[in-house]
Amino acid sequence: MNRRPSQLRRLALVVLSVLVLGGGSLGYVLHARHRGLPTATVDGSFSLAEPGLYYRDSATGQVARRSGTGGPPATGGPACERFYATGERALCLRKLPGIPARTQALVLDRRLREIKRVTVPGIPNRARVSASGNVLSWTAFATGDSYATTAFSTRTSILDLRTGYLIKSMEEIPLTIDGTRYHASDVNYWGVTFARDDNRFYATVSTKGRTHLVEGNLRDWSAKALRENVECPSLSPDDTRIAFKKKVSDDPAAPWRLYVLDLADMREHPLAETRSVDDQAAWLDDKTVGYALPGRDGRAADTWSTPADGTSEPRLLIPGGSSPAAVS
């Protein structure tokens, strides 16, 4: 039976998609474009166009914004469990109903319109977008729901919008520890943060009961461990320092403290925040980091800020807010 050229092209695309999707968990090319989808916000006028501090409102579950001019917050953003944004892109993580747990990662443009949607197993946990908005990462708890226990595992994904290439799980990235190629069945990644070149990144890897800060390279698809006891790294806007949480106690109720690491000399110093912070801190500017703590007065979370040099006391920034992201 003869087929027209258009039919043959469609058949070839189907065959190619099957081959690509069957290529394993390392990654695949996303062909869906989701064109013409409506805005992910409740109020279509809410967008990233206005500079300010964006955050998740614990009372509504929606993203809101505080501007530097004061006044009441702007509301009407998308509903998310975790949120992060730069000037060009936003990442909204939602927990889907049902069992087993699934996370829906929504990639949004500057007007908070959906441009891509990816569903992965697990509970929403961490979200990051590179400064350009081209590269995004998210972490979901595959099992468990707390880093304070050993009974958890995570799945961390990286999406490159320039190519549409998605790494559904980072666990197969070639890893070097102490100068030697490392292999282990318990390797676990979380908390990615990107450099401004959209190639270099940092993340946490755990194995054999230890956590390591790793530096990764997207072009070479490789990672090397730099030092131990670094979790949830967050790279400063000038690419020179990393804010992170460090385990300082075996008390499961208060195991961590926030630190900043200088990448030039690998020296670290504690921040003035002495409470245990289980969050991936966000740089609000070159001198200040923001983070969430369990809320007061029954709120799910509050956002606090503290100077990155370790001076001055923390201050309450957003009562009832989490997932802070400064957009200029």
Rank of each mutant, 00 (worst) to 15 (best):
M1T: 11
R3K: 14
Q7F: 03
L8K: 14
L11P: 05
A12C: 11
A12G: 12
L19N: 10
V20G: 06
L26S: 13
A32L: 14
R33H: 12
H34G: 07
L37W: 14
P38C: 10
P38N: 08
D43F: 02
G44T: 15
A49M: 13
A49Q: 15
G52M: 08
L53S: 07
Y54R: 04
G68T: 05
T69L: 13
P73D: 02
P73T: 00
A74Q: 07
A74G: 06
T75F: 06
P78M: 05
Y84L: 08
L93M: 01
G98T: 04
A101E: 02
R102W: 06
A105T: 07
V107W: 07
K116I: 02
R128K: 15
S130P: 06
S132V: 02
S132A: 05
N134H: 06
W138Y: 14
W138S: 08
F141T: 01
T143M: 10
S146K: 09
Y147E: 15
A148T: 15
T149Y: 10
R155G: 09
L161N: 11
T163G: 13
Y165S: 02
I167W: 14
E171P: 06
A184L: 07
Y189M: 10
F194S: 02
D198K: 01
D198W: 02
D198H: 01
N199L: 08
N199A: 08
T207D: 05
R210D: 13
L213T: 03
N217E: 14
L218C: 03
L218S: 04
A225R: 11
R241K: 14
A243F: 06
K246T: 11
D251W: 10
P252T: 10
A254F: 12
R257D: 11
D262Y: 04
D265G: 03
M266D: 09
H269L: 09
L271H: 02
T274V: 09
D279N: 03
Q280E: 05
V289C: 00
A292D: 04
G295R: 00
G298T: 03
A301E: 11
W304N: 06
S305R: 15
T306N: 09
D309T: 00
T311N: 11
E313I: 07
P314T: 04
L316Y: 02
G320I: 13
P324C: 06
V327H: 05
